[in-house]
Amino acid sequence: MDPIIRVHSVSKSYWRDSFEIPVLNNISFDVPGGEFLALMGPSGSGKTTLLNLIAGIDRPDKGSLHVAGTDIATLNESRLAKWRSTHIGFIFQFYNLIPVLTAYENVELPLLLTSLSKQERRRHVETALTVVGLQDRMRHYPKQLSGGQEQRVAIARAITTDPTLLVADEPTGDLDKRSADEILTLLDRLNKEFKKTIVMVTHDPRAAEKAHVVRHLDKGEFSQN
């Protein structure tokens, strides 16, 4: 079976004033479908940059990135947006829910980019919110929810389009231990029960324990630890 992510000789630098800051240095690796991968490493090691490249919200300077069968480094901005809406489910550290929309409307957002009818969208939203256990909080606004509940709504938003890949950037970074455990259990369930491929950036060793594979980045390269 072809890997769902194939990263080949990818390098990425940022420019600050006139200084080039290398972030990723000739990275290559594959992720097979159904894997739960944790990317760990100190701050500035390049793990979030690598996640952004895989998710198609940033572009590599060098190398190729095949994700879900597409060389995403070659897509133009518009096609990349369409590709993201089909293949990627985002889970952010600070949930990034739209505060003026209800839980239902937040989860419905990515579905507005599909051709689904209103009834079909409703079915998808209700299913996603049921999976995360928040079917009774549909009409609540983010500020009416706890941090853990907000992250669960964000996960429902990430899975509602049934994407190929879930990318999670420090999904438990803003949560207390109990809520963090709930989120990790949910991600584990999405991986095992719903066969979702997950790439997660984390500092938290307990979070990394849920992953099948843990890769450590340091100064833009994979290390052994």
């Binding site: 998710a55 947006a81 089909t86 985002f90 990034n96 505060p99 957002l109 980019l113 938003r157």
Partner: peptide
């Protein structure tokens, strides 16, 4: 700004 970034990440175009 974050909302715009989120919307764009979800696939909404410029």
């Amino acid at each position: 700004t974050v909302e715009v970034g989120t919307l764009r990440a979800l696939g909404f175009r410029r």
